[in-house]
Design a protein around this nucleic acid. Structure first.
Lengths: 225, 225
DNA sequence: TTTATTTTGAGAACATGTTCGCAAAACAGC
DNA sequence: GCTGTTTTGCGAACATGTTCTCAAAATAAA
């Protein structure tokens, strides 16, 4: 999974541009101006190459974004991890969320096919932490994967939803009233909550969900231990 | 939130095509050939109008997909709901997942800004069920929303990830080895699981996650009751 | 040295989502 | 009935992701 070296001199015309260069340039462009402004033509012009040249080194735009995110994730340091397996899972899960949420453009590729499998070894250390802690807490491999997958779904959903709802402007909010003005007969609870929803939903309750998943899917510790 | 009627005769040139027609035609096209094949030009031609005409009735492609999904969700019947609030939440959450997972194209719009708020009253009945059951179990409004949001994140993540990983072909799997061939020194657990991951991950453990979230975020019932 | 092979770079070309400007078709006021 | 206003339909046009085709630049074989 670590990147392969150019063992010996290749056969055809030597490349003047490398995948690493493309990823670096793309990352610079994204962090400076946001992922929406990253078009392949802009990237190509910024690098002084033709647009189609990029496709020699990158499968498509989505692939490029995965590489950029991987590049970022490799540099994220591991958090301090508690001894107790249960708390270790919580800390790792929250760290995963934090890393991904810190880059809004991550949402664009979080759910692409086989995402985790495409990442570098260094980028999936937190996955390892969760699995190892789960096994240490008494899980089988299968149970550890089940727990991780639940945490991962939760994480992907949270990051995506939050990333997408940053966009809202005032006119948008006027056009789509959200949960305001719901029929109180059909939807009494929603009607009662009404306009308070955005305020309530703005709070960060992610860790509570993580704790619930961990408590529910990890074997209970032996009584009195 | 229910659709408004055309109260009286409007002012300008009368429309020959309606939003409802567009949504119906789009849904037919999607269910017949998949969401990838739904292009606005194809839809326009199928309806016998120009492409830009659609933009008079629909804000953009994403908006159209939300409307189509809403159209579908309105027709999904409520499942049989257990009396016990705890189990009622579980059944509602699983029904939500099932409805969304039954239409792979739903994944394209599940995380758009303010998604739930854009749906018709009839489409969010399951949201109401969860909130009402949570309150019945002793939650405050805020706690009920917290629980729902955790379930919703979990749901969105699950549906998205599953929808996107159906695409995998054999060549793809060869190109991206996933969790096979990970460094056993850095990632011992992942290396040990290796190629078993896809098999383990294929199992449906969604309900287990839901139960964990419910057990963890709903107030414990009074002892002995 | 010449020729075949392989790989890269690049511009043209295509489909798509979307915007713009204009003509058509209704109503309101005169 | 005529004029101004408002809303709709439509085709042209634009930016974008992506593919295709061909020339360029290297190695391997002859």
């Amino acid at each position: 999974m670590s990147r392969a070296q150019p063992e010996t001199r290749r056969r055809g015309r030597p490349s003047t541009t490398s995948r690493a260069e493309i990823v670096a340039a793309a990352r610079r462009l994204i962090e400076d101006e946001g992922a929406e402004r990253l078009t392949l033509r802009r990237l190509a012009t910024a690098m002084g190459v033709g647009p189609s040249t990029l496709y020699r080194h990158v499968r498509d735009r989505e692939d490029l974004l995965v590489l950029v995110l991987d590049d970022f994730l490799q540099q994220v340091p591991l958090p301090d991890l508690p001894r107790a397996p249960r708390e270790r899972v919580v800390v790792a899960a929250v760290a995963m969320r934090d890393a991904l949420a810190s880059r809004p453009w991550a949402a664009d590729v979080l759910a692409v096919d086989g995402f985790l499998g495409r990442l570098d070894d260094a980028s999936v250390r937190l996955v390892e932490v969760v699995l190892a802690a789960a096994v240490e807490a008494g899980c089988s491999s299968e149970q550890a994967v089940d727990l991780f997958r639940a945490l991962w779904s939760h994480c992907v959903g949270e990051v995506l939803i939050r990333a997408r709802s940053r966009t809202t402007t005032r006119e948008e909010r006027a056009r789509y009233p959200g949960f305001a003005s719901r029929d109180p007969r059909l939807l009494p609870r929603l009607a009662e909550i009404g306009t308070r929803w955005p305020h309530i939903a703005a709070r960060d309750t992610y860790a509570a969900g993580v704790r619930a998943l961990v408590d529910g899917m990890l074997p209970r510790p032996a009584d009195g231990a």
